[in-house]
């Protein structure tokens, strides 16, 4: 912060304060006399201070209370299933509401497969976009492209789902799917019948959704690399790519890993778009064309029609598991990003 702005800002604000006193702010002016006297009183300052601080603390503590309450409530609501299946719940493949036999393995499998696919597609692309915006793009393109990728993040999940149903699924069924089956069928990943809905389609729509997250944090981390590092590489005769590799990528690799994990956290919990295109079938199949289910999609799909307490409590237990997993994943990611941007130089000359 430079010296002049330090001087100017208080002056500006004192003017504002002055104006508001002369042409009084409506709230204070129109308040009843009692309240006005209270607002202007000086003797009750200590009491008011303590009351105000207490109010702020209460609101801040409510965040803590909410998280604790959520955990307690989810534990309470899922205790039927916790008692019936124990930890084995997460290793059983059965999902039979009629006979009351539940296991979460197919959903864990679906979540892992779709998130992994999404990362495989999104991470290289997001890195390239971040490099392009930060290092390669001409200055006039930088803001529009950054804005457009941020726009991707503002589109609601359900709109992605709508687009996927009517554009991505037919494309998958008629063009991309047959192509993959023909040329990559030998891998065994693209066997079976292809209806357009399945793990691969869900993975693709997820990758589009997590890309802006990864790319914007990667940009932030790359921006924290001191310019002197880049100039040093260029001065020693490095080409632009060598400069990016040696100065930018090497200095920001921990933050990039954090960005990827943050994207993973988003992919694990993403619900609506996945529910709309994954095909909804609680089965483990090795083909990426096969319909499946994720932890989030099974809750969205079956919660309102769950009959019987055990069924409902099994679904809530899945929610509890999702809650705990995303907390762990997000905490790791935040730590990594924080580790990099914390030491951000104030002014890199």
């Amino acid at each position: 912060m430079s010296e002049p702005s330090r001087v100017e800002v208080p002056l500006l604000n004192m003017q504002v304060a002055e104006q508001s006193r002369r042409a009084p702010a409506p709230m204070v002016a129109k308040a009843p006399a009692g309240i006005r006297r209270f607002l202007h009183t000086q003797t009750s300052g200590a009491v008011a201070d303590r009351a105000f601080g207490g109010l702020m603390l209460t609101c801040a503590l409510s965040i803590l209370a909410i998280v604790v309450l959520i955990v307690v409530m989810l534990l309470d609501q899922s205790k039927l299933s916790l008692h019936a299946f124990g930890l084995k719940f997460f290793f059983r493949t059965a999902w039979d509401p009629v006979s009351g036999d539940f296991g979460a393995l197919p959903f864990i499998y679906g979540t892992l497969v779709t998130s992994f696919l999404a990362l495989c597609i999104a991470v290289p692309l997001a890195l390239c976009v971040a490099i392009f915006i930060m290092e390669i793009s001409p200055a006039f393109l930088r803001t529009p492209i950054a804005f457009l990728t941020e726009l991707l993040a503002a589109i609601p999940s359900v709109v992605y789902g709508l687009w996927a149903i009517f554009v991505l699924v037919p494309m998958m069924r008629d063009h991309l799917g047959p192509f993959l089956a023909k040329y990559f069928g030998w891998t065994g990943l693209f066997g079976g019948s292809n209806f357009g809905e399945g793990f691969l389609t869900a993975g693709i729509i997820l990758s589009i959704m997590i890309l802006p997250v990864i790319s914007s944090i990667t940009r932030e981390v790359m921006g924290a690399v001191p310019i002197s590092q880049k100039e040093a590489a260029l001065a020693l005769g490095a080409t632009r790519w060598e400069m990016i590799r040696m100065s930018v990528l090497r200095n920001s690799r921990i933050g990039i890993v954090g960005a990827v994990i943050l994207g993973l956290g988003r992919a694990l919990g993403e619900t609506m778009a996945v529910t709309m295109v994954i095909g909804n079938n609680p089965q483990i199949s090795h083909s990426l064309f096969a319909p499946g289910h994720t932890l989030a999609s099974v809750i969205a799909n079956e919660f309102t029609e769950a009959t019987g307490d055990l069924y409902l409590s099994a679904l809530i237990e899945i929610g509890l598991a999702l809650f705990l997993v995303t907390i762990v994943v997000n905490s790791i990611a935040r730590l990594l990003v924080w580790a990099v941007t914390r030491g951000k130089p104030v002014a890199a000359h």
Binding site: G265, G269, T271, I316, I327
Partner: peptide, 12 residues
């Protein structure tokens, strides 16, 4: 942490 909780979990 609360910021990263999936929306479906918030629904439950």
């Amino acid at each position: 942490v609360l910021n990263g909780v999936p929306s479906i979990v918030m629904g439950i």
